[in-house]
Write a protein that binds this DNA or RNA. Structure first.
Lengths: 126, 126
DNA sequence: TCGAACCCTCACATCGATGTGAGGGTCAAG
DNA sequence: CTTGACCCTCACATCGATGTGAGGGTTCGA
């Protein structure tokens, strides 16, 4: 598929698909006329990128963790330098911290909402 | 305490403490000379703000969810408009989505790391 | 009284993610 | 051949979070 379809299917502006490519997060083949072509797997990949961006990770980091989830179990770690492994470990820990923070606050918001809803159901205009 | 101490204890630049105040995330009393004064609870509050910012939430949203976790159980929902409740529900769901995305990817990174570590332990230079 | 170490406000700069549009090719259908 | 719907690159604009520094007060100890 070309960029327009991918944009529509992922709800992502074309501008951003090009930006993600520029940042090395996705690679697109080109037709002889220069048009980008994508395949089905790019739909998931873009969704993943957007999810991570939305969770606060910068493209620089996303670029590093994406290969870890590539393909089924084809771990191509020969190019894994010690610095890179350390970066990944740090990022794993940061993600864990984020998850904890988000969970705690999400639960608090959820509880607040349920209490308010309960009150509203009991005495609407009180 | 004044801004310098809070900055040091939270590892947050003074500039940002002032910025958070400007965004309505924290309120600081003032000494007669204009200096900001904070109390112990602000240390936790700043940590919470930073955690949420790091998790990708904008100050505008953080400002809305902070009151939900304020104090023990003093829910002051009289000023809870329907729009606000809807915003909170949306944000709760977005946080849940973020948590799922982060967890999935964190686990993948963690597994990648453990496999690589294992390989390295087995045949270091192979 | 002077200097160091605080604090203040204001304002411009940077950085990453994104919006927007100019200027211009490609291609299929009328 | 032309029009409309695609696509391209390039470049400037915006927005939120953050850096940086100018210009200036306050406090305190040497």
């Amino acid at each position: 598929m070309r960029i327009g379809e991918l944009s529509e299917r992922t709800g992502t502006p074309r501008r951003l698909l090009r930006y993600y490519e520029e940042q090395g997060l996705i690679v697109a083949d080109r037709l002889p006329n220069g048009y980008r072509v994508y395949d089905e797997s790019d739909v998931d990949r873009v969704a993943q990128i957007r999810g991570l961006l939305d969770a606060g990770l910068p493209t620089r980091i996303i670029k590093q963790i994406l290969p870890c989830l590539d393909k089924p179990r084809v771990i191509h770690f020969p190019d894994a330098t010690p610095e890179m492994l350390e970066t990944l470990e740090n990022e794993r820990d940061r993600m864990t911290a984020r998850i904890r923070c988000l969970t705690r606050n999400r639960d608090a918001v959820a509880e607040y909402l349920s209490v308010v809803r309960e009150k509203l159901a009991a005495g609407p205009s009180a």
